[in-house]
Amino acid sequence: TRVETATETAWISLVTALHLVLGLSAVLGLLLLRKQFPAHYRRLRHALW
């Protein structure tokens, strides 16, 4: 049972790390898009919101 708990903890930390990386890359991508293609960014924002 101890090994299972350790594996679960590892999976949870892995998933958390993946979510963090995905969130950060999404934010960075949006910032880059905003900087380089303001028109595209505006259109995207209108489409999303």
Rank of each mutant, 00 (worst) to 15 (best):
L18D: 01
L24F: 14
V15P: 05
T1S: 04
P38M: 15
R45C: 13
P38G: 15
V27P: 10
H46C: 15
R43G: 07
S25T: 11
S25M: 12
L18V: 07
T5L: 12
Q36K: 15
H19K: 04
W11K: 09
A17Y: 06
V27W: 11
A39W: 03
S13H: 02
L32V: 14
H46A: 12
T9R: 03
H19Q: 15
K35F: 14
I12H: 06
L44Q: 01
V21A: 08
V3A: 01
A17N: 03
A47T: 04
T16K: 04
T5R: 02
L22I: 11
L28R: 02
R42W: 08
W49F: 12
L33W: 12
P38R: 15
L28N: 01
T7D: 08
Q36T: 05
G23M: 14
L24N: 01
H40F: 15
S13T: 07
A6Q: 03
T16N: 02
R45I: 12
R42F: 08
L31W: 14
A47I: 11
A17L: 10
T16Y: 11
L32G: 14
T16A: 10
L14I: 03
R34P: 07
H40K: 06
L30K: 02
T7E: 04
P38W: 15
W11T: 10
T9E: 02
L14T: 04
A10D: 12
K35T: 14
V3W: 00
H46G: 13
T7M: 10
A6L: 03
L44N: 07
L32Q: 13
T5C: 01
L30R: 05
A6F: 02
A39I: 10
L48V: 10
H40W: 15
R34S: 09
R42I: 11
E4W: 00
T1V: 13
R43F: 06
L44S: 02
V27M: 09
I12G: 06
H46D: 15
G29Y: 02
H40V: 12
V3Y: 05
V27E: 00
T9I: 09
K35C: 14
L22Q: 00
A26E: 02
T16E: 03
R34D: 00
W11R: 11
L24T: 01
F37H: 04
S13P: 05
L28I: 14
R34K: 12
H19P: 12
G29S: 08
L22P: 10
H19W: 14
Y41T: 07
L32E: 08
R34I: 14
T7F: 10
T9L: 06
V3I: 09
T5H: 12
E8F: 06
A26V: 06
I12F: 13
L14H: 00
L20C: 07
G29A: 08
L30S: 08
H19L: 15
L44H: 01
R2V: 11
R34Q: 08
Q36Y: 13
R2M: 13
Y41I: 14
T1G: 02
W11E: 04
R45W: 09
T16P: 00
A26M: 15
V15W: 08
L14Y: 02
A26N: 01
T5V: 03
Q36M: 12
R34W: 15
I12W: 00
P38S: 15
A17F: 06
F37V: 15
L33H: 12
A10K: 09
S25L: 08
L44I: 08
T9Y: 04
L20V: 15
L22H: 00
V21F: 11
K35D: 08
W49T: 13
W11F: 12
A17I: 07
L44E: 02
I12Q: 03
L32M: 14
L20E: 00
R43V: 05
T1H: 03
E4R: 02
G29L: 07
G29D: 00
G29T: 07
T5P: 01
V21Q: 00
A17G: 08
L14V: 06
V15Q: 01
R34Y: 11
E4H: 08
S13C: 10
F37S: 13
T9W: 13
K35L: 10
R43Y: 06
A6H: 10
L31C: 13
S13Q: 06
S25P: 00
L48R: 05
T7P: 11
